[in-house]
Every structure is written in structure tokens, then in C-alpha cells.
Amino acid sequence: MKKSLADHLLDWSGRIFLTAILGFLVLPFFVVAIASFNKGAILSFPPEAWSVQWYVNAFEYRDFGAGLRNSLRIAAIGAGIALIAGAGFAFVFQRYEFRFKSGLNAILMSPLIIPNFTIGLGILILTASASLPRNLWTVVTVHVIIVLPFVVRSVYVSLQNLERNYENAAESLGASPAYVLLTITAPLLLPGLIAGGIFAAILSFNEFTASLYVVNRGTTTLPVAMYNYVREYADPTLAAISVMYALAVAVLLLVLHRIFRLERVLNVE
């Protein structure tokens, strides 16, 4: 079929529009990537000379190393707690009817609408007024609150997709509820659980606004350390970190996608 001129224009403007949007999405990353290899401390475009010195600096700056260790520890502990608690909540929500179900659900999902800085500030005020120490566990608490809704949703969806007859069949074959959970429900949910856990860890690792309120010198996370750095120095070290950071998360997501199919985890299928 022959296309009219208007069709051609529409066709091409559509393509250009889409390309522009995709370009805007990835443009910041390319700017940062080029900046990270710039020899000079002040960004000039295009760079006059290339260097990896900012990468070296990133590894040598001690706050980043400490921040990375804190972030990894917080992400691991936080994701672990969120996974166990979230799986429990999801199980209860999917399987049982009780009086304050919708109320409890609203409370559990509220971190999705309450801004992260409000959560951080809330916990800060709470620890201060209760004279609790501000340590790693304070940060973990904040992160658990923030990632919990995502874990609950992810496990809930996995549970909903789980054919109920598997468990019924197992029960009819003489398996007690605990044995069914152990031998049927858990193994069939495992991919969803692992994916939910990794997703929670990534969210926790990336969290900045709420952490800013509750960290102290000893518990500074990597994103907060980066923020502190940029307030003191104006060189492309952060660009170098950003590139490594983005690549690491991308690799992790790729692996996750390969193993568990990301669409399913994010529930956007």
C-alpha cells in the first residue's frame, strides 16, 4: 500500500520523537562516563586529554571504601529482614481473611506514597526522643520500611500465580501444612523470593534521601559518602564512581533477568 506524505511525516516524526526520548534517558550516563575519563578536574567538552586518575582516586578515598562496606552490609541485612517479613505478610494477605486486613495493607504500602525523607526524618526524631543510639540498625530499620512494600508485592504476586491445587494435592497425599510449606510452597516460590530479595537489596543500596537523616560518621552509606564528597571537592571522581555503580547494578540486573525474568519480578508483564 502506498503511503501518503502525511503518513511518511508522521512515521518519521514518531521515530525521531522516540529516539529523542531514549536519547534523553541514556544521555546523562554518557555525559558522566565521558567526564569520568577527563584528565582535567574541570569538565571540558570534548575532553582535551584522557585519564583514569579519577578511578584511582575513587578507590583510594577512604570514605568510599567504608561507605561501600556499610551499604553492602545494610543492603544484605535489610533485604534479608524485608524478605522474611515481607514473605510472611504476603502469605497472610494472600491466604487469610481478617478484620483489619485493608487497614494493615494500607499501612504496609504507605512507604510507597510517603516521601523517603519523611521516613528518614521520622525515624531520626523517634530515635532522638527515645534517646536510642543511632547505629547501623537505625539505617537498616529505615531501609526495611522503604523496601518492604516492594517485597510484599513481589511475593504476593508469586503466591497468587501459584496454582493452589499443588498444595491441595500435597495435603491430600498426607502432608501436614508445615510439610506442604517446606516441600511444595517454598520450592515453587523460591525464584520469586530470591528475585524479590535481590530487588530489595538494589533498592536499599541505591537509597539516599532517607539515609541522609539517620547515618552518622560510622554508618555513612556509599550514596551519602558521594554526596559529602561532592560538597567538598568538585572533581570527576564521582563520575568515575557513578559509572562503576551503574555498570555493577546493570550486570546484576542482567543476571537477575537471565535467571528469573525481570518482568515477572517487577510485575510489569
Binding site: N165, E171, G174, I184
Partner: peptide
């Protein structure tokens, strides 16, 4: 409870593990 009833069941979709 079902696990103590000693019944066998075959479902429409078989529900094989």
C-alpha cells in the same frame, strides 16, 4: 484436616509437582 483423611484426588489440571 485433609492430610489425615486418606483420600486420593486427581484434579482437572492434574497439579503434578
Amino acid at each position: 484436616p485433609p492430610h489425615l483423611r486418606e483420600i486420593g484426588i486427581v484434579f482437572q489440571n492434574y497439579a503434578l509437582f
